[in-house]
Nucleic acid binder design. Structure first.
Ligand SMILES: [Zn+2]
Ligand SMILES: [Zn+2]
Ligand SMILES: [Zn+2]
Ligand SMILES: [Zn+2]
Lengths: 172, 172
DNA sequence: GTTGACATGTTATACTGTAACGCTATATCC
DNA sequence: GGATATAGCGTTACAGTATAACATGTCAAC
């Protein structure tokens, strides 16, 4: 059995997602412990919820899930947990969708870029490649200093391209 | 007097903005005429409003301006005009700001990328350069087909870097 | 002038995000 | 253990963003 956890993003491919999510949660715990940050019950559950699929969830979807688990049922509960996780680099905000998704490469420094399938709503974190450099180069010609960047592409994932028109596929 | 209308984006530099905006409006008229689309009063005024500065305006800011000119004062009036202009490639949506800005390169095919100054709120459309290609390359490795992309960077424009901390500068 | 298509005006509502306050849990220091 | 400080959570109330649905108006083609 091949190692299906080599990097090239597997959001679009079938894979051992239980392990995928478990690994991510473990990395999150390590990373937070190192930084002296607290992974409280709400925060942990929020991250778990996002890790259940390679999709982006709206704050209110997350909130619904938290409520079902007995946590506070007001928007700030979800927003606070999500913002904390984003600050810690464990979650990314997908502005195009007004939604959040778990980071698949926590720890590594990365200007994240996302590929969003409009059919199955899977979200993959694209391999950085020369992307960051290209954006930096564009900024340089205008003498602009980049602090944060948002790169998001909408289109069709391989599975949905194959089934052209059909609905959900894969882990999304 | 040098031609200050050579491309490298001038949003961050002083320039003859009346001509800058006038040119853009003229290109818009041509482009719509070719496509058989109608530049109605609301649409024209909406584009003018966005062309007054190199900033992004929220739909409700645009609406306020339209109301002041005697147009309908409900959100759909502004959203419809903005969406029409965006479909025609004359306006871009800046998701990071929940706002809209006039396109500075209408006609040309371009996967737009924006540089947003967090100090003076100027928004420049970055020269495409290798950016589109880099994103496409990243997508290719996952066999993802890009249909639309959102590229936005937040940081400091040259003027605001110089004044480090001071407020508004330039045309923004 | 009637028809049909498109655009605008209007009502109402849905969705997304935050400010502010008070309570509770946790860590720290004595 | 008890006092103190801090961070996190629960809640109320509201602000900001966006859209569905329907009525009215405008314009060009026939
Ligand atoms: Zn997975
Ligand atoms: Zn898909
Ligand atoms: Zn200008
Ligand atoms: Zn600036």
């Amino acid at each position: 059995m091949p190692d299906d956890h080599s990097d090239p993003d597997l959001a679009f491919a079938p894979h051992d997602h239980a392990r995928c999510a478990g690994d991510a949660m473990a990395r999150a715990e390590t990373s937070l412990a190192l930084g002296g940050q607290r992974l409280t019950a709400v925060r942990r559950r929020t991250l778990q919820i996002l890790l259940e699929s390679h999709r982006a969830l709206g704050a209110y979807e997350v909130l619904d899930r938290l409520v079902a688990d007995g946590y506070g049922n007001q928007p700030p509960v979800a927003y606070r947990a999500l913002e904390f996780l984003e600050e810690q680099g464990l979650v990314h905000r997908i502005r195009r969708l007004n939604a959040f998704t778990a980071c698949m490469h926590p720890g590594e420094v990365h200007a994240p870029a996302f590929l969003i399938c409009r059919a199955c709503h899977a979200v993959a974190e694209a391999p950085a490649g020369t992307l960051g450099a290209a954006l930096q180069a564009a900024a340089d010609t205008l003498h602009f200093t980049i602090e944060r960047s948002t790169i998001e592409a909408v289109g069709l994932c391989p599975a949905c391209k194959a089934t052209a028109g059909t609905a959900t596929r894969g882990i999304a």
